[in-house]
Computed example of a mutant assay.
Amino acid sequence: MAASNKWLMSSVAYYLDFFTVPLFVVAALYLAPFEPWLALSGLLAWTLVEYSAHRFLFHSLYRREHWTHHLDVLAYIGVSSWKTSSTFAVLLLLAWSTGLTSEFIGAVTGYFVYISLHYVMHRPGHWAYAFIPGLVANHDLHHRKGIEKNFGVSSPLWDHVFGTYIHAKHVNG
Rank of each mutant, 00 (worst) to 15 (best):
N150Q: 08
S4P: 04
L94V: 15
F151W: 06
Y129K: 06
L43Q: 02
V49K: 03
W96Q: 12
D140H: 09
T84M: 00
Y114M: 01
T98V: 07
L93Y: 14
T20K: 05
L40R: 00
H69P: 06
F162I: 13
L31G: 02
G42N: 01
T98K: 04
V108M: 11
L91H: 09
I147A: 00
S81K: 02
T68R: 07
E148Q: 08
V90G: 08
S116V: 07
F56Y: 15
V153M: 10
T84P: 01
L31C: 07
L93P: 05
H143L: 08
A53Y: 15
W158I: 08
L71H: 05
K83H: 12
T84N: 08
S86V: 08
P133G: 07
H160V: 14
V21K: 03
R144P: 00
W158G: 07
Y76S: 09
S4T: 06
L16I: 11
P36D: 01
V25P: 02
S102L: 06
L8P: 01
Y30Q: 10
G125L: 11
F131G: 02
W67F: 15
K169L: 12
V171R: 10
S155T: 15
F162P: 10
W67V: 02
D72Y: 12
K6N: 04
F58A: 12
F104N: 06
L157G: 01
S4A: 08
D17S: 01
H66I: 09
T20A: 09
F104V: 08
Y15W: 15
S11L: 13
K169G: 01
A128M: 15
Y30G: 06
N172C: 00
L157H: 12
H142F: 07
I105R: 00
A130Q: 14
S52R: 06
S154P: 03
I132R: 01
L92K: 04
H142S: 03
A75K: 11
V90T: 13
V26E: 04
D159I: 11
V153H: 05
E50F: 11
H167P: 05
T109N: 01
F112Y: 15
H142N: 05
W7S: 03
S155A: 13
P33R: 05
H142C: 04
P22K: 05
L31F: 12
H122N: 05
Y129G: 04
N150R: 09
W158V: 09
P156Y: 13
G125R: 13
V90C: 12
S41A: 10
L57K: 04
P156R: 13
S116Q: 05
K83V: 15
P156N: 14
Y111M: 12
G42T: 02
G163R: 12
N150I: 09
I105P: 02
T87R: 08
V171P: 10
F151S: 03
A27F: 13
G152I: 10
S60H: 13
